[in-house]
Every structure is written in structure tokens, then in C-alpha cells.
Design a protein around this nucleic acid. Structure first.
Lengths: 225, 225
DNA sequence: GTCTATACCGTGATAGAC
DNA sequence: GTCTATCACGGTATAGAC
């Protein structure tokens, strides 16, 4: 930590250090948003928590919008990772078709409840001027595409009614997930996934959804377990 | 408008005038929120649009929070009125049980899309410090109670499966409605109820919901029309 | 009931010394 | 890369004249 050591720091080490500071700043930003609301974020408060002065933060982020951008990117990345992990786990257990889709839904709801600030930033529009044009629609569009493909595959496998290979099915699916998340976060913000008044109905809600597209004599789960 | 006329104004006229100004202020506030987001509301901007100076507004509202409170109350009142009107209309056509509940769902989604700012204030938590304690839960609790009663009546009438007389049914119902509203407002804010990517699925979503509680040999609508 | 004036604070952002 | 200092701006809220 001695000043004379500074010049001995390698360039990549310096980059690493810089990246660490950026990550710390984003961690602090998430904490602030969880305490004061998504709109309560400010450069000053981030800097305060990092133990630095507010102008110094501008060496890492050119503006407050840039911070929101980075947070948005983090949210996309982490929620996507949570979903992918759940889908992979289901697949490695040999499941195809509906089961991985179910797993994806559960994973998203769980992630949203455990990351309310990022979820709010991703799925609502709480910040007046902020809208990451391409990045805003990219994840939801990509998720929608993957979903559509998943439903089509399940139909192809004879697991779902042909009407599931449509625009309606993936949209209804996201409606159900979004409803679970919104109701939970609005009415019982503190609760966890398993104990939440609404998120504990995730499996029931998914049953309700899949029942709409289950074949009459299908081997899938019935309307009520 | 002459100054000498001021003393001729009756007390109740003055009260009326005051109430009009308050309503105008709330109208302006709604407009601001629709343009700049719920968090973008400020006393200064309201005053600006009313053509008065910002300190003058404090004669009508003691604080910004009080404005939010009044807006919240207006939202509760108007959304409730929209729902009540829809239910009454259904009843006057002789419908009982499921049909009025369906009508209530449609009315709420429609109202939310047509009043995005108030809906956001009511159903999300966009303002950091604001939470109208008793008033926050009162409407959602009351709605839940009415819903529960409606489902119980439909079960009693043999129109729905007994499992609809539960905590699950009204919660799933609000989950579906909340999902419709959230997805529409987040992904396609400008669209109307009839043309919206998500709100146009309202009937399909309600079908999906009621199918879960429809009796096997019931006379109600089937899973797919 | 509206106004001017003001106190006070926090914010985002920039310049320039070290 | 961090700091001090500063700017310009907007906000909430109050005091007091008219």
C-alpha cells in the first residue's frame, strides 16, 4: 500500500483493481436502490458508501445514466444466468419440453424476489429518463424467442397442444410470471420466495398455465395435483 | 374578477373554488407523472402548470407527500368506481357468479391501461418515502374480500369447483390481472387496451384462470372458445 | 390567497491541483 | 486516481408583504 509501490503495479493488475472498484460501486448502488427505491439512487450516495468523494466516481462512470446502464446489464446477465442454470439442471436430469420451461419460470420468480431492485429496473420503468434502447428489448425479446422455441419443441414432442406453438403461449407465460413478481413485491416486499403470499403460488400458477395447453389424454401433470 | 367583488363571494363558493383548484392541481400532477414518470412529480412543476408560483401551492397541499396521498386516494376511488360500474352492468343483465367477476377483471385492466400513472402509484411502489399505511392495504384487502365472497358465491351456485372458495383463487386472479397490466405498461406503454400486445390477451388469460376452477361437467365456458 | 424573497439542501457535472 | 473547489440547477419549505 506504500506509495512507492504504485509504479510496480502491473497494468493488468491496475485494470483488475479498477474493475473491482466498479463492482463495489454497483454493489453499493444495488444496496441503495433496495433501501431508497430505484429512483433514490445518486452518485453522491454511491461515493459516500465507497468512502470517496462524489467527483471521483466520475472516473468510473461518466454519468448517473451510465450507472443505471451497468446495473441494467448486470440484471440481464444475472437473471439470464439463473434461468440458464435452472434449465441446464433440468436437462441434465433428462427432462425435455415442459419441465425445463417450468424450471425457468420458477428460477426467474425466485431471482426477482431475491433481487428486487434489479428486477424492478429490468421489468418496470421506474427511472424517468432512463431507457437502454437496444438493451431494453433485447433480453425480453431473446427470452421470448427462447420461450417460443421451447413451446414449439414441446408441441413437436406431442407434450403440448398445438395451440402452444403461438404468440399467445409465451406471452401468457410471461404475464403469469410478471404477475407473481409484481404482486409479491408490491404487497409483501420483505418476504422470501418460499414464504411469500404470492410467490408460494408459483407452482399453482404454472399448473394453471400449462393446463391450458395440455393435451386431453396427455401424460403431463393434470390441472390439480 | 374585480377585487371589489371578492367580499361578495359566499363562503361555500369559496370552498368550491378551492376544491376546483385542488382538482386542477391533481389533474396537472397526473399529466406530469404520465410524462416524466411517477417519480418525476414536483411541487414546482404543478405550480408552473397552474400558472402560479410554487409557494402558493402550499396553501392547498402541506407537502409533496400530501399530493401523492391525494393522488392515491383518487386512484383508489376511480378504479373502484370502474370496477363497480362493470359489476353492476353485468348484474343488471341478469348475470351472477363468474360473469361479474370476469367483468371486474376486464374493467380493472382497462382502467389501469388508461390511467397508467395512477395505476403505477397504486399497484407498484415507485416513490421512495411514500406509503399511505392504512390506505395502501385497505383497497387491495377490500378488493380481495369482495373477490373471495364472489368466488364463494359462484361455488355455492354450483358454477365453480369448491377449490375456488379458497385463498388461492382470489390471489391467482389478482396475479393474472397484475401480470397483464405490468407486462403491457413495461413493454408497450403507449398502446391501448384493445390493441395492446398483452391487454388484448385479457380474455384468454381470464379463460385460463377460470378453467382451473371450472367443474368437469359444468355449463360454464370451456378452456378454449 | 397570491406574491416576492429567501433559506437550505442535494444533486449532476466540470476544472484543475496534487 | 483522488482530491478540493466550484458551478449551475432544481428541489422543498417557510416568512412575511400585499
Amino acid at each position: 500500500m506504500a506509495i512507492s509501490n504504485r509504479q510496480a503495479v502491473h497494468p493488468d493488475r491496475r485494470l483488475l483493481r479498477r474493475q473491482q472498484t466498479i463492482e463495489e460501486a454497483l454493489d453499493a448502488a444495488v444496496a441503495i436502490m433496495e433501501e431508497a427505491g430505484v429512483g433514490g439512487l445518486s452518485m453522491s450516495e454511491i461515493a459516500r458508501r465507497l468512502g470517496m468523494r462524489q467527483p471521483s466516481l466520475y472516473k468510473y462512470f461518466p454519468s448517473l445514466h451510465a450507472v443505471y446502464d451497468a446495473l441494467f446489464a448486470r440484471g440481464v446477465e444475472r437473471s439470464g444466468a439463473a434461468i440458464q442454470a435452472a434449465v441446464q439442471a433440468a436437462r441434465q436430469e433428462g427432462h425435455r419440453g415442459v419441465v425445463p420451461i417450468r424450471a425457468a419460470g420458477r428460477a426467474l420468480v425466485r431471482w426477482a424476489v431475491e433481487n428486487p431492485a434489479l428486477a424492478q429496473l429490468l421489468y418496470w420503468r421506474p427511472v424517468p429518463g432512463f431507457a437502454p434502447t437496444a438493451a431494453t428489448f433485447a433480453p425480453s425479446v431473446r427470452l421470448m424467442d427462447q420461450l417460443r422455441a421451447g413451446f414449439a419443441a414441446a408441441v413437436q414432442a406431442g407434450e403440448l397442444h398445438p395451440s402452444a406453438a403461438s404468440d399467445e403461449a409465451p406471452r401468457l407465460f410471461t404475464i403469469v410470471l410478471s404477475g407473481l413478481i409484481s404482486q409479491q413485491m408490491a404487497n409483501e416486499p420483505g418476504a422470501g420466495y418460499d414464504t411469500g403470499m404470492f410467490t408460494s403460488l408459483t407452482d399453482a400458477a404454472l399448473e394453471m398455465f400449462f393446463a391450458r395447453y395440455t393435451l386431453p389424454g396427455g401424460t403431463g401433470a393434470g390441472p390439480r395435483g
